[in-house]
Design a protein around this nucleic acid. Sequence first.
DNA 1: CTTGACCGTCAAGTTACCTTTACAATACAC
DNA 2: GTGTATTGTAAAGGTAACTTGACGGTCAAG
Lengths: 70, 70
Amino acid sequence: MTLKNKLSEHRKEIGFSQDKLAEKLGVSRQTIISIEKGRYNPSLPLAMIMAELFETKVENIFFLEEKDYK
Amino acid sequence: MTLKNKLSEHRKEIGFSQDKLAEKLGVSRQTIISIEKGRYNPSLPLAMIMAELFETKVENIFFLEEKDYK
DNA sequence: CTTGACCGTCAAGTTACCTTTACAATACAC
DNA sequence: GTGTATTGTAAAGGTAACTTGACGGTCAAG
């Protein structure tokens, strides 16, 4: 199951580099790159910390694809 | 990083057994038990499918602990 | 034309998520 | 008291999430 996401859009909106975001979130830069590129999904806690940082809900950053679960 | 959750409350609210919920979500019963017991966190897509089923937001089922990320 | 900031790839290793199978305990129906 | 529904534990195995380290490419200063 792969999700789509708007991580890079949200990141740029607050003027963060991948490096800076990684540090802020307490993960590696590789992790940010991989998630932005859709190579894998973040863990739930990481997604929630992102939502907090961006002052939004998880559902506004990550999106389920209809076909995948129906 | 471990989250708290109200999965069993939401599950009971819609009158589902662990077994039935597992089937509905397309995961094993073990997975439901382990998440309810806080042994591990669901993946992000699983958490989002749960939120959809319960007609709520991820943040209303799963909760970050302050100390863990500050 | 070098330096620095930023974005990207690849590879190898660890840990977390999830599976299947088997078995035990409670509780309520009949 | 025997079924059966529900919740739980344990163990072994596979895959996904995340790490570190090394390296390449672009672009805008200076």
